[in-house]
Design a protein around this nucleic acid. Sequence first.
DNA 1: TTTTCCATGTAAACAGTTACATGATTCC
DNA 2: GGAATCATGTAACTGTTTACATGGAAAA
Lengths: 208, 208
Amino acid sequence: MSLPHALLTELVERPRSGSELAARFDKSIGFFWHASHQQIYRELARLEEAGCIESLPEEPTRGRKRAYRLLPAGMERLRAWMTEPTAPMPLRDELMLRLWSSATVGADGLAQEVHRRLQAHEAKLALYRSFEARDYPDGPDSREAALQHLVLQAGIRYERNWVEMLQEALAILQQPRPAGCDTAAPAPEPSVPPSGAAPARPSDSAAP
Amino acid sequence: MSLPHALLTELVERPRSGSELAARFDKSIGFFWHASHQQIYRELARLEEAGCIESLPEEPTRGRKRAYRLLPAGMERLRAWMTEPTAPMPLRDELMLRLWSSATVGADGLAQEVHRRLQAHEAKLALYRSFEARDYPDGPDSREAALQHLVLQAGIRYERNWVEMLQEALAILQQPRPAGCDTAAPAPEPSVPPSGAAPARPSDSAAP
DNA sequence: TTTTCCATGTAAACAGTTACATGATTCC
DNA sequence: GGAATCATGTAACTGTTTACATGGAAAA
């Protein structure tokens, strides 16, 4: 239930249309929350019906821009939300699952996939760092800027984490084989090791 | 589409029942993929219908344990999945969104919430580290153990990231106010400031 | 036997994704 | 005028969560 509040926050500053909001979700807010335009339009309709926002061009027009303005009820809802408890969002990633599976199933072709993802995360890390260099070049920021800077730094750390992780994963996947295939060539893999072959099964005891 | 493959992976070693699988999702796999027991039972039914697994006690019994065994088709599906491309999972967390919102709406009571989350992540970090100390006490692991160790390390890094982040967030939230009002006192917010007023608005230019 | 807990489910609501549709604007 | 693009939607599907229901086993 975070999307409506993300939208309300964006409307505090000034009225915006769905496409403007969608564009902002690809930039700043997108560091830690993503939303497609379909989600945004649907949520805007809900918020309007709930009396949190109002459409400025009053008649519903398809194809023409339609800005929404924050109403007092929306501001109230936003403030109430700020003090509610949050639940930690668990780490959830398919590539991690595959690395786990590869320990029991075999690592055929996985190095290639890991390498692809590594490149993607490196690119994103570089992008975020360029944002940081451009938008926060000087020392300590004001309180407001510091909070937004912190959010960007979270994105940077997250990507850096992935880069380091995947580099280690590559090292493991390529370790038993000699050199020469660390960037582009897919690592040759042992074809189907027997299922019970893994000597260590820490997962069986990985809880108190 | 990762849940079925997570289940299939768990069934490679030996047949397991729904509750056994659910228990494992709270431990090892839970570091990077979570699933409730409802999801698991539904997915097991699907996998059985698809011929990937088979139920050992053949008649469907409600209330009694029901182990599933991996079938060749399931193993095939698992192997095919290992080479498919993956999409990076974007960072998505509600507390980050609130930190962002607090820059424009005000930070009332947020420090309290940040502190609560900080404690939760510290606890989880300590738990994961204890797993690591117990399950991987000695030096370098075998290839299989190294992969599973890496997954645990990813969880550790993820939690450590959060701890560092939230500590900084606390420092920011408590910095400008001398004392006493960092958790309860309302921050006066500019009621609809003119759009260009903020000194730093990196979000407006945070894209190439 | 009654209670309690465990294991297996069912049902409904919601969030998010994908594919597609339509009206307006702009550019040639 | 026609094509391309932008802005706003609709519809269907999948995945996830929440709440509840039921049968069996074990314990009191």
